[in-house]
Amino acid sequence: MLRFRCPGFKGDTVLQSYPVAVGREGWETPTGEFSIFQMLKDPEGEHPWNGTVIPAGPDNPLGDRWIGFWSDGTNVIGFHGTPAEELARQAVYHGCIRMKNNDVRALFGQVALGTPAWVQP
């Protein structure tokens, strides 16, 4: 479950929710309290194993929005879109939280740098 203190909540009442895909076994999405530190339109992607840069565009695995909320100083995890929307609600990725493209665009418009984010199992 993902929780934000943003227009998607009023107190503890959920006003908006989205289906998401999370990290698979061995690449689990980190849980805890975080803060959004990066927001990008049309981001470039980087392959997690070989570092190949994937340019912005329809084949980019990050979709057209990126909302970064976690980093260990080397790796970064965030919310982003995907060209594979049929995989929503499955644990198949590398720690990031993938969302349908229209959903991540809506979320992008509801949050700002510094918005707290709670990621709960």
Rank of each mutant, 00 (worst) to 15 (best):
A21T: 03
A21P: 08
V22D: 03
V22N: 08
V22L: 11
V22C: 13
G23I: 00
R24G: 05
R24E: 04
G26D: 03
G26N: 12
G26K: 13
G26E: 08
G26C: 08
W27L: 07
E28W: 06
E28S: 15
P30W: 11
P30K: 15
T31L: 06
T31Q: 13
G32E: 01
G32I: 09
G32Y: 07
G32V: 05
E33R: 15
F34S: 09
F34M: 15
I36N: 13
I36G: 01
I36T: 00
F37V: 13
Q38E: 09
Q38L: 06
Q38R: 13
L40T: 14
L40I: 10
D42V: 06
E44F: 10
P48N: 02
P48Q: 05
P48G: 05
P48W: 11
W49H: 15
N50K: 01
N50R: 04
T52P: 09
T52A: 13
T52M: 11
T52C: 14
I54Y: 08
I54S: 02
P55W: 00
A56Y: 07
P58A: 00
P58N: 06
P58I: 04
P58G: 03
D59Q: 05
N60S: 08
L62N: 05
L62Y: 06
L62E: 02
L62Q: 08
G63F: 02
R65S: 07
W66E: 03
I67N: 07
I67A: 14
I67R: 03
G68M: 03
F69M: 01
W70Y: 12
S71D: 11
D72W: 02
G73N: 12
T74L: 15
T74R: 03
N75C: 14
I77W: 05
G78I: 05
F79L: 09
